[in-house]
Amino acid sequence: MKLPSPNDIVEDIEFLDDWESRYQYIIDLGKALPKLDESERQPEYKVKGCQSDVWLIDETKGDVLAFRTDSDALIVRGLLALVLAAYNEKKPEDILAFDIDAYFQSLDLENHISPTRGNGLRAIVGQIKSLASAKV
């Protein structure tokens, strides 16, 4: 699956003017995100600090980091897609330089799906950043 760029996502979401269409957009991203195989949903890939189960598998491809991720909750999968759009197949230094907070803010997600919800967004961002830090 080819993820849209963060800029495209921000534009798409700004164009949608009610919460239902915004949620539907995120849900549809979630539906499109490839699933992990059942065999890949291993405890060692589980991200701690999530209310629903979230898995993250990373892989170094040349000079970029690639991520595959999954959750058993659909909206969380959509949120994970938003995160992957920003980070997947990027160089570690680009990952660290990306302003994720500004990105979430421009998606107007603070109101709808806040980082305090325990949905794992913060946890997964933290894990991706620390993987990137280890490579720099």
């Binding site: 629903s52 909206i75 969380v76 949905n119």
Partner: peptide, 8 residues
């Protein structure tokens, strides 16, 4: 998933 129900 129950979490999705909760969000909406």
């Amino acid at each position: 998933h129950p979490a999705d129900i909760g969000f909406i």
